[in-house]
Simulated scan of single mutants.
Amino acid sequence: MRAGIAALLAAYVLSQFYRAFLAVLTPVLQTDLGATASDLAAASGLWFLAFAVMQIPVGEALDRIGPRLTTAALVGTGAVGAVIFAMAGGPGAIKLAMVLIGIGCSSVLMASYYIFARSYAPAVFGTLAGATVGIGNLGNIGSSLPLSLAVEAFGWRGSLWGLAAITALIALAILTLLRDPPRTGGGQKGSLLDLLRMPALWPMLIMMAVCYAPAASIRGLWVGPLFRDVFGADAAWIGQVSLIMGLAMVAGSFAYGPLERVLGTRKWLIFGGNALALACLTGLWLSPQSPALTIALLAGLGFAGASFPMVIAHGRAFIPAHLTGRGVTLLNLFGIAPVGLLQLVTGRIHASTAPDPASAPYATIFGFIALMLAAGLVVYAFSQDRTD
C-alpha cells in the first residue's frame, strides 16, 4: 500500500505542477504559436473547469470501482493531454490538452483521501490530508524555475514530451502498485442527494468555497501583475515572491494537522486560521504600497490559507462510510470550482477599475476576496465541531 500511495503522491505533485505551469510557458507559446494572454487564461480556466466537472463522476467511481482503476485510467488520459500539448500547432490544441490534463488530475487527491478515510484511524486523517497537500505543493515550485531551465535545455516541446512520459509512467505505477481498500459491508446504497440533505455538512461546503480560493487565485494569477504594475518588479523578483508564498502554503499544509492534535478542535482551528487569512487580505486591501509588507502579508495568507485539507477532514467526519468517495469529492468540488470562478470575477474587477493609483485595481480585488471570506466565516461559525 505504501508504494501505491507514493505513486498517488507523485501524481498529485504533477497535478499541482500542471495547474501552474502555463505562466512559465507564456512567452514561448506567444512567440511560437501566437497564443495570446487571453488564450492561455482560457486554457487555464478550462483546466479548473474540467477538474471541477469531473468531481461528481470521480466520487461515484471511487465508491463503485475503487481508486486504483479510476485513477490509473484518468492519469493516463492526462498523459494523452500532455502529448497533444507537445504536438500543438495553435491555441485550440493547447485548450484541448488542458481539458484532458484537468480530467487526468481530477481523481488523484481524492483517491488519496478515500484511502486515508477507509484504511487509517479517523484521528490522523487531517494530518495525512495536510501532508499530502504539502508534498503536492512542491509541484508549484517545480513549475517555476525548474521548468524554465528545462525549456532552456530541451525546448518547450521536448519538455512536454518528457512530462507526457512521466505522466504515463505514474499512471502505470498506480495501476501496478496501488491496492484498493476493503469495500464496506452491508450493501448500503446512497447518492449525492443524501449528502446534500445533511444540514451539518453545509457549513463545511461553504467554508470549502471560500478557504482555498483566496490564496490559490492570488498565488496563481495576481502576484505577478501586482508586483509588475505597482512595484515595477522584473521576472526574477516576481519569481522570488511567488516562491515565498508557495513555500508558505507548503508550511501551512503541514502545520494544520499537528495543530489539530494540540488544540483538540477542528472547527476553531479552521476558523482561527481563516480569520488570520482575512486579516492578511484586509492588510493587502488597505495598504498594497510597501513591497516588504505586501510580501509578508502574502506569505501570511499562504500559510493561514492552507486549511482546506482540514476542512475536508471536518466534513468527512459527518459522511457515512459507504458515501466516502462521493463525500470527499463533493467537498473538493466546492473547493476547486470557486478558484476558476474567482479568476473570472477578479479579472473583470481588474479590467473595470481605473489604475489611479496603480494599486487601485489590486486593492479592489483584495477587498472583494476579503468580504467573500468574511461571509464564509460567518456561516462556518454555526458549524458543529467534530474531531473523530
Score class of each variant (00 low, 15 high):
Ser159Gln: 01
Tyr380Trp: 08
Ala52Gly: 10
Ile65Pro: 03
Pro225Lys: 10
Leu46Cys: 02
Leu297Arg: 14
Leu226Cys: 01
Ala321Met: 10
Leu195Cys: 02
Leu243Asn: 07
Leu344Lys: 05
Leu342Lys: 13
Leu109Ala: 04
Gly300Asp: 11
Ile244Arg: 04
Leu331Gln: 14
Arg197Met: 09
Leu205Tyr: 02
Asn332Tyr: 04
Gly81Met: 13
Asp356Met: 12
Leu243Gly: 10
Gln343Asp: 07
Gly66Phe: 05
Val339Thr: 13
Gly34Val: 12
Ala93Gln: 09
Ser191Gln: 11
Pro355Cys: 14
Gly158His: 07
Leu293Phe: 04
Leu342Ala: 15
Arg266Asp: 08
Thr31Pro: 00
Leu281Pro: 06
Gln16Leu: 09
Arg183Asn: 01
Ala131Glu: 02
Arg64Tyr: 05
Pro338Lys: 11
Ala111Leu: 09
Gly186His: 05
Arg157Phe: 07
Ala6Lys: 08
Phe318Tyr: 14
Thr265His: 08
Asp388Val: 07
Phe125Pro: 00
Ile369Asp: 04
Thr77His: 00
Ala279Phe: 02
Gly76Asn: 06
Ala121Met: 04
Gly347Ile: 03
Ile174Cys: 09
Pro67Met: 11
Ala200Phe: 02
Tyr212Val: 11
Ile349Gln: 11
Ile206Met: 15
Thr282Trp: 14
Tyr256Lys: 04
Thr127Met: 15
Thr294Leu: 14
Ser217Ala: 11
Lys189Phe: 05
Val210Phe: 06
Phe254Pro: 05
Val133Lys: 09
Gly66Asn: 03
Asn137Gln: 07
Leu276Ala: 14
Val80Ser: 12
Asp388Ser: 15
Thr346Trp: 03
Ser148Leu: 12
Leu331Pro: 01
Ser148Trp: 15
Gly302Thr: 04
Met208Ser: 15
Gly335Thr: 03
Val108Cys: 08
Val345Asp: 00
Leu100Asn: 07
Ala251Glu: 04
Ala251Gln: 06
Ile166Asp: 01
Gly126Lys: 01
Pro309Asp: 04
